[in-house]
Amino acid sequence: MKKLFGTDGIRGIANREPMTADIAFHIGRAGAYLFKDKVNPKILIGRDTRISGDMLEAALIAGICSMGVNVLRAGIIPTPVVAYLTRIYNANCGIVISASHNPFDHNGIKYIRGDGFKFTDSEEEEIERIYFENHSKDEWPIGKNIGRIKELSQAEEK
């Protein structure tokens, strides 16, 4: 049974559990752990305009890059565009930082598969398992093996 993920990702009041920068960092690492052994692994990230989006995006990106996975940063774009760009850029997965219709002080993290569809319950459970069992604790790439960030400045035009 899932502990962090609900029906549409992880949601909550920003800067309170489970929407803290620390949890976002480790959820980023746990998600990246799934793809770290792929050739040229990359995760695309997009977000909405909520104030907390900067904090959560920075934490997720740090976690992903610290696992040796690259990030395609799409900036402020709608959720369906993240799904579309995840496919177009052949990313291993996408992440949306948004709480859609929830109050402004809330935010959320939703994983999207490489085919543009939302992660299944079992895939979210796998991220949680890695997170709670701390499987990524000893994985700290160095040098050229640290993940890089690529800004997708034209993402909204694709």
Rank of each mutant, 00 (worst) to 15 (best):
residue 106 H to W: 12
residue 16 R to W: 01
residue 128 E to C: 07
residue 76 I to W: 03
residue 101 H to Y: 02
residue 64 I to Y: 09
residue 44 L to N: 15
residue 61 I to D: 08
residue 67 M to K: 04
residue 43 I to F: 09
residue 40 N to H: 14
residue 98 S to P: 04
residue 50 R to Y: 14
residue 92 N to C: 10
residue 16 R to V: 02
residue 30 A to I: 00
residue 70 N to T: 02
residue 46 G to H: 10
residue 83 A to V: 01
residue 126 E to Q: 10
residue 18 P to H: 00
residue 36 K to N: 13
residue 131 Y to P: 04
residue 78 P to K: 07
residue 51 I to M: 15
residue 82 V to K: 03
residue 83 A to K: 08
residue 82 V to D: 05
residue 97 I to H: 06
residue 48 D to E: 08
residue 85 L to Q: 01
residue 136 S to E: 14
residue 137 K to Y: 14
residue 124 E to C: 13
residue 79 T to I: 06
residue 105 D to E: 10
residue 101 H to M: 02
residue 117 F to T: 09
residue 120 T to Q: 01
residue 96 V to W: 03
residue 71 V to D: 12
residue 43 I to P: 06
residue 50 R to H: 15
residue 90 N to F: 05
residue 31 G to I: 00
residue 57 E to V: 13
residue 88 I to S: 06
residue 143 G to R: 15
residue 59 A to M: 03
residue 70 N to E: 07
residue 95 I to W: 01
residue 18 P to G: 00
residue 50 R to P: 13
residue 110 K to T: 13
residue 77 I to P: 02
residue 42 K to I: 10
residue 38 K to M: 10
residue 85 L to W: 01
residue 33 Y to N: 05
residue 25 F to P: 00
residue 87 R to H: 00
residue 51 I to E: 15
residue 121 D to F: 00
residue 99 A to R: 02
residue 121 D to E: 00
residue 131 Y to W: 09
residue 62 A to E: 11
residue 78 P to W: 09
residue 74 A to H: 14
residue 132 F to G: 07
residue 119 F to Y: 14
residue 61 I to G: 03
residue 37 D to T: 08
residue 69 V to H: 09
residue 58 A to F: 14
residue 34 L to M: 06
residue 109 I to T: 02
residue 66 S to C: 07
residue 28 G to C: 05
residue 93 C to R: 08
residue 106 H to Q: 01
residue 110 K to F: 12
residue 96 V to M: 05
residue 58 A to E: 14
residue 77 I to Y: 03
residue 77 I to A: 03
residue 141 P to G: 11
residue 134 N to H: 15
residue 120 T to A: 02
residue 22 D to W: 04
residue 97 I to L: 04
residue 109 I to E: 00
residue 90 N to V: 03
residue 127 I to V: 14
residue 30 A to H: 01
residue 124 E to D: 12
residue 57 E to L: 12
residue 108 G to L: 03
residue 118 K to S: 09
residue 81 V to M: 11
residue 86 T to W: 01
residue 133 E to T: 08
residue 105 D to V: 06
residue 59 A to I: 04
residue 110 K to I: 12
residue 26 H to V: 01
residue 105 D to P: 04
residue 76 I to K: 13
residue 86 T to D: 00
residue 50 R to C: 14
residue 74 A to I: 10
residue 41 P to R: 13
residue 42 K to P: 12
residue 121 D to S: 00
residue 20 T to R: 00
residue 103 P to A: 01
residue 78 P to V: 07
residue 86 T to P: 01
residue 94 G to I: 06
residue 125 E to L: 12
residue 24 A to R: 04
residue 61 I to R: 09
residue 106 H to Y: 04
residue 15 N to L: 03
residue 142 I to T: 13
residue 138 D to A: 15
residue 82 V to T: 08
residue 62 A to G: 13
